[in-house]
Structures are given as C-alpha cells and as structure tokens.
Design a protein around this nucleic acid. Structure first.
Lengths: 346, 346
DNA sequence: GACAACGGTGAGAGCGATCCCCGATCTCTG
DNA sequence: CAGAGATCGGGGATCGCTCTCACCGTTGTC
C-alpha cells in the first residue's frame, strides 16, 4: 500500500501519449501486430523503450481471462510423509519431467506454478487456486495411480493433462508410454540373452499400466515360442517385489530370467535372489521398468525400460496449451515409445 | 475466446445481489472482515456458497497491485549444461529448499512460481516476468557465488531474498548459515577424534563463505592449541579438491585429519587419499561441509556440516513476504546455526 | 466518376475486484 | 430525549488492459 518514492510504472496510456497514438494502437503493437502502419509501429516501439513500459499482467488477464501460466501439480496419495516434496524432488524422474516442461514452456514465456496435492486439503487448495484463475490449467504428475485429482479436475472443467493414464477412466488428456512395447523390449532382450525359463513379476492388475505390461510381455514371449509365462502379482512396492520373487522361486526354482514390472519391485527382488544363492545376471537375468532412481542404486544396476520422459513432459505442456486455447477440444492421449537401457543385471 | 456453454462464473456483484447487500459488503466479508454485522456476514456467506463464488485474482491484483505469489528462481552460472534443471532437481538440497518454502507458503495459500535463470537471456526473462507483476518477489537460490541476478534484482527494486550471502555486497536480504560456527564444529569433532595433524582444504577465497569457513576453522583449531593449520585453496569443485589434496599430502604427508570446505571437494579428495594408501577414516579422518548428495554418495559416506536448509528456506519466504508488505523495509540477513552429521569418514 | 471495399485508427465500454468517502443507523451521554 | 460520536453499508471511481465498433481515407472496379 505504501507507495511514496517508486514512480508509478508507465501504462499503455502513457506510451500512447508519448507516441502520439491511441491506447488501442499501442496495444496492437505490443500484442500480435495486426494492421498497424510500420511508421506508427516504430514510433510506438520507441515510446515503449523510452518509457520503459511493461504490460501489466493482471490488467491483461482481467480482460482476456487468461493468466498465461500453468500449474505443475505433484500429486500423491494421502499417506505421504511430511517430507513429501523432498522425496519427489530427489527422484531424477521428476527432474526430467520439470526439464521437459520448462524446455517447452520457457520459449513461450510461461512459468510453471508449483503445487503439491498430497492430502485432501491440499487438493482442495489446488482446485481453488485453479478456479480463481491462478493458472490456466494443470499439468498433473501423480505418484499413485488411484489419485482422485484427475477426476476432480475433469469435473471442475479445468484444462489438465496427466502424466500416465488414470486408473479409472476420466475424460482428461494424458501422455503415456507404450507399456506393451516396453514389455516387448524386455522380453526380446531376455530371449536374446539366451534365457529359457523366464518369469515375470507384474504390477497390481487393477492398474491399467500393470495389465498392459503383463499382456505385452506375454504376447512377446508367446511370439518367441513361450506360450506360458509364470507370473506373480506385486503392488509396485519393494516389499511386494520381494514377496512376489519368493513365490516365483518357490514354484519355479529353475528360472533364469525375470521381467519385473517396475524398478522398485526389482529392487526388492534382487536381495531375494541373492539369498537363494542365485547370482545376477549369471544365474538369473533381471529387467526392470521405469529407469527410476532405484534402477541405478540397485546392485547390480538394473537393465530397465526407460520412458522418454522429457518428450512426454513437453508434450503434456503442448497439449495443455492447446486445451487452454480451445476449451472445446476433446481429451487426447499421446503414447510414446520406450527404450531399453541395458545395465549389469542382464 | 470461445465461450459458449461455460456459464460465466459468479462475480461479487452476483453474490451481493443474492445476499441483498452491496459489493463492498461482500468484499469485506471475503477479505479481512472489518465492521460487518454478523447477520449480514451469514447472509453473505450463504450467498457465496449458493453461487459458488470464487474471487477473481486478476481483478484483485489489478487494484491491490499484488499477485499473491512469489517466484522461486534457480539461478546458475552461464556455463550450465542443457540438462540444468534435471541436475538441480536431483540434488536433495534443492528438494529441502522447496520443502521449506512450500511448508511456509502453503498455509498462506501461496504457490511458488518456478523460474530458471542460468543464462543472460533467462535472467532477462525472469526480470521481465517480475516487472510485469507475475510474482510479488523472488526467492533466489544460486548455484554459483558470482551470480549477477541479485544485483539485477536489487537495481530493479524488486523484493527478493537470497539463499546465501552474495559474493559482492548487494543491498538485498539473505539467509545464510553461520560458516564460522560450522567450521568450528568440524574442528572440535576432529580434535575430539584424537587427530593431531589436521589440515584443511578451503574454498575459493574470493567467496565470503569460503573465507568464513577457513577463518572459523583456524580460530577453533587455535583454541585447541593448534595455532597453525596447513591449508590448500580449492575452487569448490571435485577436481579442485583432488588437486588441493595432492598439494596438502605433498607438503604434509603425515596428516591424519582434513576439513574440506565443501562435500564436492571432499568427494574429489577421497580417491587421492586412497591412492596414497591412506585409509579413511583410520589413517585420515575427513569432514566435509554442506551435507549435499555428494556426502552420502561418497565411499565412505562423509561426516559433514549440515545447514538447517528447511528452516532457512522458510525464513526466506517469511522475509520476502515481509518485504512485499513493507517495501521500505531495509535488507536483512538472518544467520542459522549448522549441525554436524557424523558418518563413516571420521 | 461514383460507389464499394478495405486497411488502419481511435473512442469508449467493459473485465471484476478494492477502497475511499459519505450518508444512515445505532449507541451512549448529559 | 436530543445530539454527538461511533459504527456500518453503499455508491462510485478506479486499476490497466483488450476489444468491438464506428469512422476515415485510400484504392479498386464497373
């Protein structure tokens, strides 16, 4: 409220006066220059430079009903610990997401607004912020498949794009990786490594991605002449991977290759193999999925299926801006091809 | 622009009509309730609930000249690689900063706007964004001491708070850790461990923090009866730590303890000790500074001096809001006490 | 040569909030 | 019970911008 010395920053009006034209003309020059005489354009530009004018975003937003910024929402399940942000930020995966998003948005002069939605209260705050017009839309990265936020966003009619397909069908755009193709990469790799008795640890089968990875793996193995592939269902956590590995070994002690549907479960599975006296990769080759931080911190480091995260993140941003431009646009889903990263575990 | 079906969201006017009062009264209720009859308050609240009203931030900002959001600027030197954001995000340090900032801002309904300023162009973009009123002020985390952004912000008269004291004096608020006290912790620890021939690798002595750590270490050692402490100057990088360690060993082959002024240099120093056949910590105890990701990824993990990063980050946010409220407020600097984290290297 | 068409410009009406200021009501005192 | 003071509510101006629309001069066409 105090505003004694700071000279009020120049407005369109001031620039118009300095250039000897009307506000409207200055506005035209500042924005997409539409039908303005080039002599006047120069005059306006000089006046802008002379006055040091910068447009006031609030005033602009008020009339355009756009803010020109987007929210980057990191959403988790409700059981997150207090150190939630730290964990997320430490994961290279999230860094890659941010990198991809920023890489796309920055040339367009857009900065992401960082929001966390790990509790019901936080989710409500995010929705309110979005409804208030703090951002034009949301880029949502969920750490859990059963995140309720996608549905809430869709119901509120707020433009949003998800990283990964939501567990329940929600009319909302998302980018995802081709899980089937990724699983096929793993299958082809294990077979190429000469493995004969190959099994898999799947994710929770109520998660679409987990089903797709399992189906893709089975199809690929069938194509390689292995119509039946033993499998154990896990829950995408390290402990569940541990248990699933135990079950698999109990039933198929002779296996020499495992495709584990995510790195975290693989991280849990490795010690189990070791305990059973099985060397990785000599006795059993292990392939994970995600190329998360777990993959590199494992011993041995994990061969895994890597998402083109940066590209996916950039596409999220592109999609979101498209939706902001054209609200009537139908939800879209863009699928990306994964790549195999070969490390010491296979 | 297209806006066919979406019913225009209710405005203050609508709520006022529904409640049978004036806009001003509704506004009073929505904001700090000042002198509004409680019966009317209830009526207004009901009307708000009934209409589903949410205030329009743009309109509010236009008159209050506040956005109610702050920028979190991650600033680097110009030589940063293209993968800049990824690297930063992977460092737990930054996660802790974000955690501290978010922890403070969230209860106040404020979301940080994420900006990167690793090139001159990016810096200009940040300044423009701030001048346009995209955020009320900036929280600046520099990865390099010689960052030009603090000065630019100060000159533009934009509210800002730095993490760590700037290399050159700039009239701007900052939080920092008590480097002298941290160095003293390291000194006390090494002495307590029974080390007798203690040396130190300092940071670049044109950086205030490096000078303070060296001075603090020397003072503390002097108090322990070691008036002379051998030292070698490094540049806060792993390679410089390596070279400094070589120099130290060449001159003082019998040393049994080293305080290295940051973890990165310590990371470089460890292999040198190993190459010289010196075991850590048995032959030489090593203490770092920062508790960065380098500290835990070292072999052995590093005993180090840890900043209370979360507290510092929260204080940054608090200071910034204070400056936004009271622009005439003088720059302040708040100093925090570090703590020693003992790991295997000492 | 007159009329239509069109590119270029300016005037003015908002966008949706805040807040100043004045008038109305209420309360308390002499 | 009247008047002063305090409290409370409403009207209206205002923030800085965009955008519609009307206007004007020029050019093209029949």
């Amino acid at each position: 409220m105090r505003q004694e010395p700071p000279p009020p920053s120049p407005t369109l009006e001031d620039v118009a006066k300095a250039a000897g034209v009307s506000r409207a003309t200055v506005s035209r020059v500042v924005n997409g220059i539409r039908n303005v005489d080039s002599a006047l354009q120069d005059a306006v530009r000089q006046a802008i430079a002379a006055t040091g004018y910068v447009p006031n975003r609030a005033a602009r937003s008020l009339v355009t009903r756009r803010t020109g910024s987007v929210a980057l929402v990191v959403s988790g399940a409700d059981d997150e610990s207090a150190s939630f942000p730290v964990e997320v930020f430490t994961d290279p995966f999230f860094g890659r997401v941010v990198g991809g998003i920023v890489g796309f948005l920055r040339p367009r002069g857009i900065h992401p607004l960082l929001m966390f939605a790990e509790t019901a209260e936080a989710r409500a705050q995010v929705l309110t912020a979005l409804r208030q017009g703090e951002a034009d839309g949301a880029l949502l990265v969920s750490t859990h498949a059963a995140d309720p936020l996608p549905r809430l966003l869709a119901e509120a009619g707020l433009p949003a794009v998800l990283f990964a397909r939501p567990a329940e069908p929600v009319p909302i755009s998302y980018v995802d990786v081709d899980h089937r193709a990724g699983a096929k990469l793993a299958a082809d790799h294990l077979v190429a490594r000469g493995r004969k008795r190959i099994a898999t640890i799947s994710g929770p089968l109520d998660v679409p991605a987990a089903r797709a990875r399992l189906a893709g793996f089975r199809d690929a193995m069938a194509a390689h002449g292995h119509p039946f592939v033993p499998s154990a269902e896990g829950g995408f956590t390290a402990e569940s991977g541990e248990q699933a590995m135990e079950r698999l070994l109990a039933e198929h002690p002779g296996l020499d290759g495992v495709f584990v549907a995510n790195d975290l479960m693989a991280q849990g599975a490795l010690p189990v193999l070791r305990r059973h006296g099985l060397a990785v990769p000599d006795d059993v080759a292990v392939v994970g999925f995600d190329d998360s931080s777990a993959a590199t911190s494992c011993r041995p480091p994990l061969t895994t299926v890597r998402h083109p995260v940066e590209d996916m993140a950039a596409e999220m941003a592109r999609l979101l801006l498209e939706h902001v431009e054209q609200p009537e646009h139908r939800p879209a889903s863009i699928i990306f091809e994964p790549a195999l990263v070969v490390r010491a575990s296979s």
